[in-house]
Design a protein around this nucleic acid. Structure first.
Length: 163
DNA sequence: GCCAACGTTGGC
DNA sequence: GCCAACGTTGGC
C-alpha cells in the first residue's frame, strides 16, 4: 500500500463550488475539464483512492480553502472531451486513446473556519506550498503531509465570535 | 481591469 | 526542434 498522499484542487466557485460538491449525489463529483498535461499526469500516475484533497476556491475574493475531500476513483477518461456541446470538448482527442482524464472527488469535511489565502501567506511554516509560489497556475497540486496537517488544523479551529 | 507567468500552437 | 505569437490563469 502506498502512503497516503495529499493534494490541493482549485475550482472557480461560480463554475463548481464547495456547496455544489455537498449538494452532489453521494457528495461526489467527476473532476472534469482538466486540460493541462501536468495535472493530468498527476491524476493518472500519482493519485490514489483515499488520498486527501484540499478544496480551494480560486479567482474569487477571498480565495479560500473550504474543506477536505477525498479521491474517490482511479483516473478514467473525461467524458466532456467527447461532448461537442461541452466547453471542454476536444475534437483532437481520439476515443481509442483519450487525451484527458478525470477522477471522482468526494467531500470529506467542511472546515469550521475556511482558510483564506491571506491566512496561509501569513504563516511561516508553509514554505514550499505550491499554491503560494509565484506564478503557480497548476489546478491540481501536491501538498506535503506537513502542510496538510497545518492547513487542516487551521480549518478545524472554532470560529471565534465577538460579543 | 491589469498584467506576469505559463502552456500551447504553428511557422519555419 | 526552435521560438515568437497567442491564449489562459489567477492574484492583485
Amino acid at each position: 500500500m502506498p502512503r497516503k498522499q495529499y493534494w490541493l484542487m482549485k475550482s472557480e466557485p461560480y463554475e463548481f463550488s464547495w456547496d455544489d460538491l455537498l449538494a452532489s449525489e453521494h457528495q461526489t463529483t467527476p473532476w472534469t475539464g482538466v486540460r493541462n498535461y501536468q495535472a493530468r499526469n498527476l491524476m493518472r500516475d500519482d493519485m490514489r483512492v483515499g488520498d486527501g484533497v484540499l478544496f480551494y476556491h480560486s479567482n474569487v475574493k477571498p480565495q479560500v480553502v473550504m474543506g477536505t475531500a477525498k479521491i474517490a476513483s482511479a483516473a478514467y477518461p473525461d467524458p466532456t472531451q467527447f461532448d461537442p456541446k461541452s466547453e471542454y470538448h476536444d475534437p483532437k482527442s481520439d476515443p481509442d486513446a483519450p487525451r484527458w482524464l478525470c477522477i471522482d472527488v468526494q467531500a470529506d469535511a467542511a472546515f469550521a473556519a475556511p482558510v483564506t489565502r491571506d491566512a496561509l501567506k501569513e504563516r511561516d511554516d508553509l514554505e514550499g506550498l505550491m499554491l503560494l509560489a509565484k506564478g503557480s497556475r497548476l489546478s491540481v497540486q501536491p501538498v506535503s503531509a506537513e502542510h496538510w496537517k497545518t492547513i487542516t488544523r487551521l480549518g478545524r479551529l472554532k470560529v471565534s465570535r465577538k460579543g
